[in-house]
Measured scan of single mutants.
Amino acid sequence: MALNTPQITPTKKITVRAIGEELPRGDYQRCPQCDMLFSLPEINSHQSAYCPRCQAKIRDGRDWSLTRLAAMAFTMLLLMPFAWGEPLLHIWLLGIRIDANVMQGIWQMTKQGDAITGSMVFFCVIGAPLILVTSIAYLWFGNRLGMNLRPVLLMLERLKEWVMLDIYLVGIGVASIKVQDYAHIQAGVGLFSFVALVILTTVTLSHLNVEELWERFYPQRPATRRDEKLRVCLGCHFTGYPDQRGRCPRCHIPLRLRRRHSLQKCWAALLASIVLLLPANLLPISIIYLNGGRQEDTILSGIMSLASSNIAVAGIVFIASILVPFTKVIVMFTLLLSIHFKCQQGLRTRILLLRMVTWIGRWSMLDLFVISLTMSLINRDQILAFTMGPAAFYFGAAVILTILAVEWLDSRLLWDAHESGNARFDD
């Protein structure tokens, strides 16, 4: 018995066209964080690309023209004298008006014999932002004059995390709450300039795509075929072959399989920071003279006294001054041990922890910024005066060393310790 099946006739004509040209192939790229070699397709503007294995951002879609970056830099340069030299806060102490600005706080630190601690604050609040705007201006002028731009481009990517104007702005709020127990506070004209400078700096850093600047100024022929001998440069993120001198053909720094002496430098910085954190938390970090009496505060006791007036601000200072430094030390110690013992479990967790400490590390400088600003506000000789204690130097040095330890660690070593050939990683 035959089955009668109805015929289905399409209502619209289906047209099949042959592909007349070869589909576009992607360029081969190595991930600078996990060293995976993959094919990167062509990316349009405002599109980002991520590593298929570790999800690290390979290409950032946010990109401004150099002219727009230069305009932002010149605007920031105009704001800087007002943000640093004009009063941020006014207080009335014992019937006398006192003005506080950024430069005055750094000068008070240096004047009291601790120039190293003052230079830490100076670099993060004044030096690094000033280098940022002058570097962008150098790129703008240098591109037109045919100057060598490689050193500036190499420095810009590392400079971003040292620009800490946003953290200093939080420190202004913390210092205001600490001082309000002794005097009446009012915002100064410099505060508005400083807030504007923070906003412009944040926007500029978020749109400063150094890798795209490398592509514009020093374009290189990408690798179009897969080759395990391809290496990625950690300076400019170019994937290719080393030249005859073993250097990256684009930025001219040595092109090595792994960062040289990464573990040794990381261990040295980490152990030194552990040693410095002990006096930083045991010795007094601030000293207040009130009517001839002397009151010393460690980091913890200062947080407890701050909690009596504002528990939320005390929580912020606790996280930045105690929780973050010790968390960074514990995480980095764990990561280094996992590399030495070739741990194969929990790779995803370790990668996330490394990215976390990379982002939060700079916030530990908050305590030094609060001390710097408070020193310029309260300084009335023996009637009422505020000065920093010996722990300030140890704390600042420990924070900087932990930042350097994270920067010096080559994250690809975590993958080397893991089993080879993993296309995915999980716990």
Rank of each mutant, 00 (worst) to 15 (best):
G20I: 08
C233Y: 00
G246D: 08
S48W: 15
A73R: 00
I116C: 09
L384V: 07
T204R: 01
L270M: 07
E212D: 07
M356E: 08
L40I: 09
V133S: 01
T239F: 05
T327Y: 07
P254A: 02
Q345E: 13
A312N: 12
R68L: 12
M36I: 13
A398G: 06
I319F: 12
E157T: 14
P390Q: 08
L132V: 06
V16K: 14
G235M: 01
I311C: 10
T387W: 08
W214Y: 06
Q264I: 02
G95H: 06
I14V: 11
V179K: 02
L139V: 07
Q180R: 06
L89K: 05
D114P: 04
L205T: 14
L130C: 14
L37G: 12
G396D: 01
I339F: 15
D243V: 07
C54D: 03
F369I: 03
E22N: 11
L323Q: 05
L93V: 03
P81V: 05
D410G: 00
C54W: 00
V406Y: 11
H46D: 14
E215M: 07
L88Y: 04
N281H: 06
L191G: 07
H261V: 03
S119G: 02
T15A: 08
E86M: 03
V102W: 05
C236Q: 00
A49M: 12
T11E: 12
T9C: 12
S372G: 12
A137D: 02
A223M: 10
S193L: 02
C266V: 09
M164I: 03
F38N: 07
C343G: 10
W267S: 06
I400R: 01
F38S: 07
L257Y: 15
L197E: 07
L230G: 11
I126R: 14
K265M: 05
P284G: 06
A196D: 08
I96M: 14
V399L: 05
G346S: 09
L69H: 13
F333T: 10
E228L: 10
S286N: 00
Y289T: 03
G118R: 11
A56H: 12
C343W: 15
S286K: 00
A398V: 08
P52M: 04
G105H: 01
Q244A: 07
S376T: 11
L255G: 10
G118Q: 09
F393H: 10
W92V: 05
Y289Q: 01
G61S: 15
V125R: 00
H184M: 15
S176R: 03
C266G: 14
G20A: 07
I199K: 04
Q382P: 14
N148P: 10
V357K: 07
I360M: 11
L271N: 06
G346T: 14
R350C: 10
M72I: 06
N209L: 05
P129K: 06
T9L: 11
P151L: 01
I91T: 06
A18E: 14
N101E: 02
L130P: 07
